[in-house]
Design a protein around this nucleic acid. Structure first.
Lengths: 227, 227
DNA sequence: GTAGCCAAGGTGACAACGTCATCTGAAACC
DNA sequence: GGTTTCAGATGACGTTGTCACCTTGGCTAC
């Protein structure tokens, strides 16, 4: 039955269409495996199998495993960017409600897709030993060829940051945006990652993520007013 | 020359001593490889080679690769715990100086040993999908047999937290310690991890880690006073 | 319409890895 | 002195990422 349906639906597909659907299936399979068991569980053989192709096929669409995972991470950043964009442009929300929502959205990704979340905050080539100028250098290095996985990922993360900083600017003013934006983002990420690593919610550190976010936003609001 | 020295020093070593020195060499080799290239670069074959044994030998001292890495992480937590202990008991420092020092020490580990740092904040069995009650559950599960790698790691992290929270308590009072302690630790970890992942120090988020720590401590100090 | 092109995908192979079963030799113990 | 025990060596197995090579079927130029 599945086969006959497949045959009927396979009638008249152009080559580009077929390649696009395979690429999409590879990305979906990789994202699913990532959610299930982390980067280690994403094997090109299993990805290929779930996408209905063999182990070598992914190399037609991605340079290798890293490249595939980077593409999955890029789509993760794009989704979060969309979420924050929706918050920022929602006329029914106050500035601090938008901020709280953005931070909670980030932490929510951590809770719903822990493995994906942890990959959001890994250097594209995952080489933390060379700190240098951070993503700016990566951006300059890779800005040229659009479609490059690492560059796409940096761009997607940058868009998220722009949306987020626009919300922060409305709260603490243009002049303090970069500083308090960095502090808020670091704080939210720290809260999310502490929860993921199991350090939160213990006997010693018993606060919930929501409580921590509320305190953080309140403190920044107070500090932003006085300056 | 090295060989003759070795021979001279190798005279009359008991079996337990030899085993201990091998275990030590394995840990050192694993830590070194971790610093150089991350967990992927820690192969049992290379660890064994650097420790002067073959690939199978590590299994005499550790259950497997995970167990070995967990032991390395445990020693990392112990070192940080010692650092914070030294800060806490230093009579020449004020409470806020101690706090700032502790946060900077944590971030310093991130800068000096990025790969080790990132493993400090990974679940012992690295299974972030089951959030549950966090480390408390792991602690209860594994509290029995001392010497168990995961239990040791949880204990070492717990000691660090105790030292840290003692500093926080002196600043915001006993009643707020858990909440603000969690916030400060999350904040510092977020700052460190954002720097490692290259998200800090970009055009959009240009603050330094020291600036962020200062603001964070100042805000918590203000909030702690008012309550 | 037909010949050639080209890219998606299949297949075999390779090295590296974690892990285990088995063997060996020497220290430890009675 | 014989036995036990355990650190370490060795061979083997399954899995993985990756590459070179091959096949096949749409696409394009004439």
């Amino acid at each position: 039955m599945t086969l006959s349906t497949e045959c009927m639906m396979a009638v008249m597909v152009t080559r580009a269409e077929s390649a696009a659907v395979t690429r999409r299936a590879l990305l979906d399979a990789a994202a699913e495996l990532l959610d299930l068991g982390g980067p280690e569980a994403v094997t090109l053989r299993e990805v290929g199998a779930r996408a209905g192709v063999t182990r070598g096929a992914p190399y037609r669409h991605f340079a290798g495993k890293d490249s595939l995972l980077t593409a999955v991470v890029t789509e993760g950043w794009e989704r979060i960017g969309d979420q924050v964009h929706a918050l920022r442009t929602d006329p029914a929300l106050s500035a601090s409600e938008k901020l709280r929502g953005a931070l909670r959205a980030l932490i929510g990704v951590g809770r719903d897709q822990p493995h994906l979340y942890q990959m959001l905050f890994r250097r594209p080539g995952h080489r933390p030993e060379e700190l240098g100028e951070g993503l700016d250098r990566v951006r300059r290095q890779l800005c040229g060829p659009a479609g490059d996985p690492a560059a796409d990922r940096v761009r997607a993360a940058g868009r998220f940051q722009d949306e987020f900083l626009a919300i922060v600017a409305a709260l603490v003013g243009e002049r303090n945006t970069r500083h308090y934006g960095a502090l808020l983002l670091s704080g939210a990420h720290g809260i999310a990652d502490m929860e993921l690593s199991g350090h939160l919610g213990t006997d010693r550190l018993r606060s919930t993520t929501d409580e921590l976010v509320d305190t953080l936003v309140r403190m920044v609001g107070d500090a932003g007013e006085t300056t």
